[in-house]
Amino acid sequence: MPTIAIASPKGGAGKSTTAVILGTELAHAGVPVTMLDCDPNKSLTLWAARGTVPDRIKVLTDITESDIIKTIREHDRDGQIVIVDLEGVASRLMSRAISQADLVITPMRATTLDAMIGARTIALIQEEEEALGRSIPFAIVFTMTKAVRSKQHSGIEASLSDQGVDVIKPELMERAAFSSFFEFGGDLYSMPAQGKIENAQENASAFAKAVFERLVGEGADA
């Protein structure tokens, strides 16, 4: 089954939120999803404990460097998706997860610091591609973006696009519903309405669709 690693050595970039949005939307659309919580902060486990885990989602916790490859391979089945949520630190665990990924997504806030640290993931992937002799599709998604786009955001995006980096559209905007995942658990269709929930559902769904298209080889523009 396609494995998606949500990876960035930068903390606070929105990895766990991205993982939950993606997992719940894909499950909502009918895909069995296994989510691997590889973060010692246990964000996914916390989310799973806050409410009823949606149908078709399984969360596995306490995945370590020594068992990440084995765990991914154990769940490698057609017609399903594995999402790996990693700690925001440059670790061997992250590199091993990337080695088994069909798609690496790096969530990134639209700041120069996030872009600089996120770029380390790109460099790592390029090294791993050489070591493994296969290409590892990679994309970034801007997170916590505002309705009014900053010059910094536009500049970073233009720079990434110029370098051929795949930038997923739509970006994940800063929304009350997204930050409420870790308060209520569940998905955007089960939680009490937070802000403009319809807009959040639309944003999340379009993002998951864009990721799915990349998994089946239809989506990347870059």
């Binding site: 089954m1 050595p9 670790s91 590199s95 088994q100 380390r120 790592l124 090294e127």
Partner: peptide, 26 residues
């Protein structure tokens, strides 16, 4: 959604670990 085979033998894992260490992923 099709499973795609990926190498995970010891030598590949060591090669990945080595490449990662050079970038500070330790």
């Amino acid at each position: 959604l099709k499973a795609r085979p990926k190498q995970a033998d010891q030598s590949r894992v060591e090669a990945v670990d080595k490449a990662a260490a050079e970038h500070g992923f330790v």
